[in-house]
Amino acid sequence: MRIPRFPEPAAVGTAAVRATPAEAYRVVSDPPTMVRFAAETYRARWLDGATTAAVGARFLGYNRNGPRRWVTTCRITDAQPGRRFAYEVEATPLRIPISRWQYDIEPADGGCVITETSWLRVPLWFIPFAVAVTGVRDRAGANDAHIRTTLDRVRTHLEAAPA
């Protein structure tokens, strides 16, 4: 199967956070923790005995939009503590490529800056099925809004956490 590559991100957001890059990484690289901050994902479960972020580790993401529910399989592609966490998403159980999500963390005065980026990888023929399953017609716009929500919640969490 040919996997389309969309070189331009579909959505990008940044947040300056009063936390160390290591603290930010611990949160964004833990999918079961991140569901507390996500707009669409409500549960994540490690697969194949994994318990922490490592390249090649996989997890299931359980997502919702109103009454609609769907599951994705995610494979970690980047796990650089304090710097970058990324994973690629497939529609389960069909193994159709959907997207790539990436968190880049840069040190900054008083903490760090987290940049969350998503790329769409879904084949054009699959888009009508994705819309039917998720109810989302403008995936790039939805991801943009979700990134803002997620980063705001992550910032609030990290800045409220004891040092």
Rank of each mutant, 00 (worst) to 15 (best):
T33D: 03
V55F: 10
A24E: 12
P32S: 02
R58I: 00
R26I: 03
G66M: 08
G56K: 15
A57D: 10
Y25D: 11
A24F: 05
T41W: 03
R43N: 09
A57M: 08
A22F: 04
T41G: 06
L60I: 02
V28H: 08
L60M: 15
R58Y: 00
V71A: 06
T41S: 02
W46V: 05
G61K: 02
F37V: 09
T51E: 14
G56P: 07
A24D: 05
V55R: 14
D30E: 14
R68I: 09
T33Q: 08
A54V: 10
A50V: 11
T51L: 01
A38D: 14
V35N: 04
E40M: 07
L60Y: 03
N63K: 12
T72H: 05
G49W: 12
M34H: 02
V35G: 07
A54G: 13
V28G: 00
R36Y: 03
L47V: 06
E40F: 03
R64M: 02
P21L: 06
A44I: 01
D48M: 04
A50H: 13
E23K: 11
W46A: 01
V27E: 07
Y25L: 11
P31Q: 09
V55S: 10
W70F: 02
A22N: 08
A44M: 05
F37N: 09
Y42T: 03
T52D: 08
L47Q: 12
Y25M: 07
W46R: 09
Y25Q: 05
G61S: 15
N65A: 12
V35F: 07
A24V: 05
A39D: 13
A57N: 15
R64S: 12
A39T: 04
A24W: 01
T41V: 12
R45H: 06
N65D: 10
P32G: 01
P67W: 01
A54P: 03
R26P: 01
V71R: 08
M34C: 01
R68S: 14
R26L: 14
G66Q: 14
P32F: 07
G56D: 13
A53G: 05
M34Y: 05
G49D: 14
R69L: 15
A53H: 05
A54I: 00
E40W: 01
G61W: 02
V71C: 05
